[in-house]
Design a protein around this nucleic acid. Structure first.
Lengths: 356, 356
DNA sequence: TCCGCCGGGTCATACGTATGACTTCAGCAC
DNA sequence: GTGCTGAAGTCATACGTATGACCCGGCGGA
């Protein structure tokens, strides 16, 4: 006698609410599980008759069958899920990036998980570190924005020799390893400064966030390059936290001087909003007494009064293009790094400087 | 002789870049795969010696082993992934909801996928419908915001008899089936109107978005209730699309009348921004000639000048509480529907009406 | 001496799918 | 009748993990 008799037979009643499997469909349709799988994969040409295909479809419909994703992920070795790393979704710019990326992913049957990563290395990383590490094997690739590569690879569990995940970077230095999709912020900045120079401005100042990142470096370099040999001077410079009130304080230090600038170039619309506050506190009219510019073209650009002259960045397209590049990479095609145009958007916050 | 000889033997060389499995770890540590699994699950007390545990950990570290998520999902029948359904992440309010939800999920080792759903039924649904259906079996639950239940269940692939996914709703009617987490918008609106009445306002108007949803209905009802028997009158009402410029147009129709209101109650800060524009186009000063209020307390509330009196909604906390409720539900605990307080935030856009 | 028990592991299996290898059978040419 | 081909399916297995059921050696008690 074999050591085990038949174990306690499971209740033969059809379990009611359990999700149906391909086996259930097979039984109902009177075919084998393989056939069900073939039909659902669409690979049945020359292997299954039309009549059987019909039967399988009907059976699937009546049971409400959906293939178990975990099982196919395991079998196929792919999860059709990618990770989007952005600084914060509370910034509408990245909300738009996400939307674009999601749409592109959806078109090719991929899902997107978001990992809002703190920009500053180290801070607030704890609550997310663990699930990220866990998700590592649940991902096919990573689309990462505005983050230093080293901290990213650290996040990716880089300590071990595990093979790296396919990676595409958004808005980061094109020279670095992975393919990148960027916005031509340099060209945008150039157009912006040129616009101000053409209006007659000769005294410039600059308000920048205390965030490191390729875009900001690129903006800074383009700003300096555009000013060089222009006859205009860069008179001052302030770094600030990324909030309206902090920006206002910082802008005040730029404006409250014996010879204030006539043009204030801010690296983001939010900072420009702070600059508006500072200007008004100093009794300066915009744009008569001072021209102020932003960057990004968020909603607040049109909320401000006068509406803000800024550089529009194609956030949605950035996400879309980046995701497309990543999926191409996953398909084995080596995507080329691309740049998207940024567009100068002139509104009411810039004008010729007052005559002295 | 059996029909098949040994099939073409796989190349016995250790494959270089393949992700290591628990089997590889087991071999290196000199134990069985089961033991590795037990150690990683932390369920080894009384079953594995400390020394062996050490060995397994070391082997895992040197190989850079990460458990394959697909395999454990399949085995465990759970994916530890939930879906967040929000109208649009480009609205910073929902960005904050997402952040809160993600943090709560991360704390319990869950991932979040986002499905930005159009508010208006039918539109733009196509690009997302398919992956959503596919993801259906890859989800443990759904946290949904501001959407009609019927369109949601449609999204969930409701045609078939598939068992429904555990669901928690954000900001929706508490009477409906699933547990809800809401913000006490009614109390917030009551406080707001009371504030305006106390300032002496007697002629009210209202600017609302052309979006259906529980919150907006609740705001409207609370507004009317607060005005009833107050001696004040509701003079006009306009619906508008959810954008600054459209809102400005709509607000103009409210203000450009023989007897304009002295208080304009807007259902969102974005609409209030539009109202500011309309007021200025009419030559009205804020708040001397007209008081304007918003709702939500987005960044633009402090960007506007004067800064906007509004009702702060705890977006982050909403996402956090909602996610916690959903995860409780998944754990079998029946969460109770809860409400979060909304806080009246008085700033510079409200003042006593001008004497006539 | 024998039994029972416990610490420390291993074995075997199931989760649900996808797919290469195999089978079966009808039709047809020779 | 024999052999061949193609259509229509089925079989068996592997993906990597988690876990209930076993197994084994040593020790304490009767």
């Amino acid at each position: 006698m074999p050591p085990t008799g038949p174990p306690a037979e499971p209740p033969a009643t059809d379990r009611p609410a359990a999700r149906p499997t391909s086996k259930d469909v097979a039984k109902l349709a009177g075919v084998s599980q393989s056939t069900v799988s073939l039909v659902h994969a669409g690979k049945w040409h020359g292997r299954v008759s039309e009549r059987t295909v019909q039967a399988v479809h009907e059976a699937s419909a009546t049971l409400g069958y959906r293939p178990n994703q975990a099982a196919r992920h395991l079998r196929l070795g792919t999860t059709r899920t990618v990770l989007l790393v952005v600084p914060a979704l509370t910034n509408p710019f990245f909300g738009a990036v996400h939307t674009g990326a999601s749409e592109a992913a959806a078109r090719r049957d991929f899902s997107v998980v978001v990992y809002p990563s703190p920009i500053r290395a180290g801070t607030e990383l704890a609550p997310f570190a663990s699930p990220f590490a866990a998700a590592h094997t649940a991902l096919d690739g990573v689309l990462a924005s505005s983050m230093a590569l080293e901290s990213l690879s650290e996040l990716l569990g880089g300590t071990g020799p595990g093979p790296g995940l396919p990676l595409v970077m958004l808005d980061s230095a094109p020279e670095a390893g992975p393919p990148t999709v960027n916005v031509e912020v340099a060209a945008g900045m150039h157009a912006l400064v040129t616009h101000l120079l053409a209006l007659g401005h000769r005294r410039f100042a600059r308000l920048v966030p205390d965030i490191d990142g390729w875009t900001f470096t690129a903006r800074e370099n383009a700003y300096r390059a555009a000013l060089r040999d222009s006859g205009a001077v860069h008179v001052a410079h302030a770094r600030t936290e990324f909030s309206v009130h902090e920006a206002a304080e910082a802008a005040l230090t730029l404006l409250d001087t014996p010879e204030p600038p006539t043009a204030l170039v801010c690296d983001d619309d939010v900072l420009a909003a702070g600059a508006y506050k500072a200007a008004r506190r100093q009794g300066l009219r915009i744009p008569e007494d001072i021209s102020i510019t932003g960057f990004d073209d968020l909603i607040i650009a049109t909320v401000l009064e006068p509406e803000l002259t800024t550089v529009r960045l194609p956030a949605h397209q950035l996400g879309e293009t980046g995701m497309t590049a990543l999926l191409d990479l996953l398909d084995g095609r080596r995507p080329e790094s691309t740049s998207l145009a940024a567009e100068l958007t002139v509104r009411g916050s810039t004008a010729p400087p007052a005559r002295r």
